[in-house]
Computed example of a mutant assay.
Amino acid sequence: MHGKVSSGRRSPIRLFHLSDIHFGLEDRRALDWAEACIARERPDAVAITGDLTMRARHGEFRAACEWITGLDVPVTVEIGNHDMPYFNLFERFFAPFRRFRAIKRMVDAEIDLERLAIVPLQTATRAQWQRFPWSNGWVTDRALADCLAAIDAHPKDTRILVAAHHPLTERRERDGKLLTINGTKAMEALAGRQVMAVLSGHIHDPFDLTADTAAGPLRMIGAGTLSRRIRSTPPSFNEIVIDGDVLRVEARNLDQVPTPEMQIPDVPENAMPPRGTGEPVSPVGAVPPVDPPVH
């Protein structure tokens, strides 16, 4: 039950938004808990917004794909920067998605529910000539055009969620540092189409923010991580409930931390520890000095 489906259920619609699982540094306890929640509660769909693996190794992909295919609900998967081959540059440039083949039907898959569609927007790229490393976001003209065409193909009364890996914030506010190339252009285009929200990951802490664009406001919802690469919050996923035109978010976590304390107040530069001076940290504030070692 993956990909493009028709729910047939009445509102409210319930989605689970997962991100940054990072097999290779996964948190097994958190994964088992999330899997049990999905099996028991059976959300209408699951959106996974990238970084399934830590180093895009074959064994990491096998474990990630096995876990994802065991989720017996509709699933859409976005590609994260950690999912691009790290060590095989030929494969990175000429066959970057080969290791997704076990879940090919779920990758960049649109999910159609009752007057609600989850539409993909690819933000991870093979390379970024103007900066290195290639971990930040880039909304290419083709990726944005594909996303907008998919949105425009739906009836006007369809509620739209866009799923991407990187938050679309283009510049860090305090110093103007570049985060996601063409993010401003993408946000304006999505706001102009009255997208309900953009779902993303990448920074390992949840957030629920509204960006002001030239075309109007755009809601941006970020999921935390289910890995051991925690930042200022414990492992978590978002439960999203859409009831008519109202969207509610709960950052569910094993530590029972309330959602307002889980959500950070701004989008930081990246997911590298520790958060620097001036970077957003949630009230939980458990920022590790370094990541666990990757073997």
Results as ranks from 00 to 15, higher is better:
residue 2 H to T: 12
residue 5 V to M: 03
residue 6 S to C: 04
residue 7 S to Y: 04
residue 7 S to N: 11
residue 9 R to W: 05
residue 9 R to Y: 03
residue 15 L to G: 11
residue 15 L to H: 11
residue 19 S to P: 08
residue 21 I to S: 06
residue 21 I to W: 05
residue 21 I to V: 13
residue 22 H to L: 06
residue 25 L to V: 14
residue 26 E to G: 01
residue 29 R to G: 03
residue 30 A to C: 04
residue 30 A to Q: 01
residue 31 L to D: 03
residue 34 A to G: 05
residue 34 A to L: 03
residue 36 A to Y: 02
residue 40 R to N: 07
residue 41 E to G: 01
residue 44 D to A: 07
residue 46 V to K: 00
residue 46 V to I: 05
residue 49 T to M: 10
residue 50 G to H: 02
residue 51 D to N: 11
residue 51 D to Q: 06
residue 52 L to F: 08
residue 52 L to E: 12
residue 54 M to F: 05
residue 54 M to G: 07
residue 55 R to H: 08
residue 56 A to M: 07
residue 58 H to V: 14
residue 58 H to R: 12
residue 67 W to T: 12
residue 67 W to S: 06
residue 71 L to R: 03
residue 75 V to M: 14
residue 76 T to A: 09
residue 77 V to N: 12
residue 80 G to N: 11
residue 87 F to G: 10
residue 92 R to V: 00
residue 93 F to S: 07
residue 96 P to E: 05
residue 97 F to S: 07
residue 102 A to R: 11
residue 107 V to A: 07
residue 109 A to Y: 08
residue 111 I to S: 02
residue 115 R to Y: 04
residue 122 Q to I: 08
residue 123 T to G: 06
residue 125 T to C: 06
residue 131 R to P: 00
residue 133 P to M: 07
residue 133 P to S: 09
residue 136 N to M: 05
residue 138 W to G: 03
residue 138 W to L: 01
residue 139 V to Q: 01
residue 143 A to H: 13
residue 146 D to F: 08
residue 146 D to R: 14
residue 146 D to V: 07
residue 148 L to K: 11
residue 148 L to G: 08
residue 150 A to V: 02
residue 151 I to Q: 02
residue 160 I to Q: 10
residue 162 V to N: 02
residue 162 V to H: 02
residue 163 A to L: 09
residue 164 A to S: 13
residue 165 H to T: 11
residue 167 P to H: 14
residue 167 P to G: 10
residue 169 T to C: 05
residue 171 R to D: 01
residue 173 E to W: 03
residue 173 E to T: 05
residue 175 D to S: 06
residue 176 G to V: 09
residue 178 L to Y: 02
residue 181 I to G: 01
residue 181 I to S: 04
residue 183 G to E: 02
residue 187 M to K: 08
residue 188 E to S: 15
residue 192 G to T: 15
residue 193 R to Y: 09
residue 195 V to K: 01
residue 198 V to Q: 00
residue 200 S to C: 15
residue 202 H to Y: 10
residue 203 I to Y: 09
residue 206 P to A: 13
residue 206 P to G: 15
residue 206 P to Q: 13
residue 206 P to S: 13
residue 207 F to N: 00
residue 212 D to M: 02
residue 212 D to Y: 03
residue 212 D to P: 02
residue 216 G to D: 14
residue 216 G to Q: 15
residue 216 G to E: 14
residue 218 L to S: 00
residue 222 G to R: 14
residue 223 A to Q: 13
residue 228 R to S: 14
residue 228 R to L: 14
residue 237 F to G: 00
residue 239 E to G: 10
residue 246 V to P: 07
residue 246 V to F: 05
residue 247 L to W: 02
residue 247 L to F: 08
residue 248 R to S: 15
residue 255 D to C: 12
residue 258 P to W: 03
residue 258 P to A: 10
residue 259 T to N: 12
residue 259 T to F: 08
residue 260 P to R: 14
residue 264 I to V: 15
residue 269 E to P: 07
residue 272 M to G: 13
residue 273 P to G: 08
residue 273 P to R: 04
residue 276 G to V: 12
residue 277 T to K: 15
residue 279 E to W: 04
residue 281 V to H: 01
residue 282 S to A: 09
residue 284 V to N: 00
residue 285 G to I: 02
residue 286 A to N: 13
residue 287 V to R: 13
residue 287 V to P: 06
residue 290 V to N: 05
residue 291 D to S: 14
